[in-house]
């Protein structure tokens, strides 16, 4: 099923991401996904997230699909040139994978292979354009495809709490112009900033899913504040996590905070995208507390 169909039906669309392991044994990951994520609309599979080499997104999407889940194939432009990207898009179509999330990708220097060549032959916008081209039956080289062209739901990302939000909005507009049909956002901890962002973003008329990372610990929040672009965890939230160490360790405080952010932002967006980072088991409780 295409995720865009759920938006069209007016559903508040819930997705969550899973990160493939560094290895090819995914029984545990599949089990967790089936247990905790089968009730949601679709499951994103990250593409060598943070430039750390792992099992591929495409193969993991296929495995999830075989288990009856709806995968979203995340594709970055860091590791493949346009030939490889287009080829993988056709492979996705062969496997019946219908949902894409198209990103530029982190730089190779941020990951565990800093010696690798950063490709960036295309970027998020030109990759969306490439998908549109393929959907019209022609590749980026201008050559015709054989047979019925593939059709995908084309997603993209945006960073609403970025300190350069106007530059982000300009990029978002280019993504829409290139053919993006829905957006998932970077993690949000500041609902007021998100709401202001949505005031400006609604002119593009595309559904936006609020990005959520469950805050696991004070250290994680401090790390994100210092190192992760577009994320700022306010000091009051960090204080909340400090207050009761046991409650925080058990994930109770983090889920409460995340649920509160979702409740505050829900009237302004069309869905939520949860990046649980290993805490997939907490997704059902988070959704319950968020009133979804």
């Amino acid at each position: 099923m295409k995720i865009t169909e759920a938006f069209e039906r007016g559903e508040f669309v819930v997705t969550a991401e899973v990160g493939p392991p560094k290895g090819f044994h995914i029984e545990h990951m599949l089990e967790e996904a089936k247990t905790y994520l089968s009730g949601i609309t679709a499951v994103n599979v990250t593409d060598n997230q943070s430039s750390v080499m792992r099992l591929g997104s495409l193969a993991t999407c296929k495995a999830l699909k075989d288990e009856g889940l709806t995968p979203i194939f995340q594709m970055t432009c860091r590791d493949r040139n346009r030939i490889a990207l287009e080829s993988d898009l056709l492979s996705a179509a062969l496997f019946g994978i219908e949902n894409l999330l198209l990103l530029t990708g982190d730089h190779t220097k941020l990951g565990d292979h800093p010696q690798a060549k950063p490709v960036f032959d295309l970027d998020s916008v030109s990759l969306i354009h490439a998908v549109k081209q393929l959907e019209s039956g022609v590749d980026l080289g201008g050559n015709e495809l054989v047979g019925e062209p593939p059709k995908f739901a084309k997603g993209a990302v945006v960073s609403p709490c970025s300190d350069s939000v106007d530059v982000q909005l300009a990029k978002m507009e280019r993504k829409v112009a290139a053919g993006a049909e829905y957006f998932q956002t970077q993690a949000v901890y500041e609902p007021e900033k998100f709401i202001q962002f949505m005031e400006k973003a609604k002119q593009f008329g595309k559904p936006v899913q609020l990005g959520i990372v469950i805050p696991k610990s004070v250290g994680m929040c401090r790390y994100m504040n210092e190192n992760v672009a577009g994320i700022h965890v306010p000091e009051e939230m960090i204080e909340e996590l400090k207050a009761d160490k046991e409650k925080t360790k058990a994930g109770i405080t983090g889920v409460e905070i995340a649920a509160r952010v979702i409740r505050e932002c829900k009237p302004y967006c069309q869905g939520v995208h949860i990046m649980a980072m290993g805490w997939e088991s907490k997704v059902p409780e988070l959704l319950r507390q968020a009133g979804i």
Binding site: F120, D123, S124, S126, S159, D163, A170, K171, N227, A229
Partner: peptide, 15 residues
């Protein structure tokens, strides 16, 4: 650093 020609990526922090 990524030689992007269609706008900013999501990796800028504090400019």
């Amino acid at each position: 650093s990524k030689s992007l020609v269609n706008g900013q990526c999501g990796g800028s922090k504090n400019g």
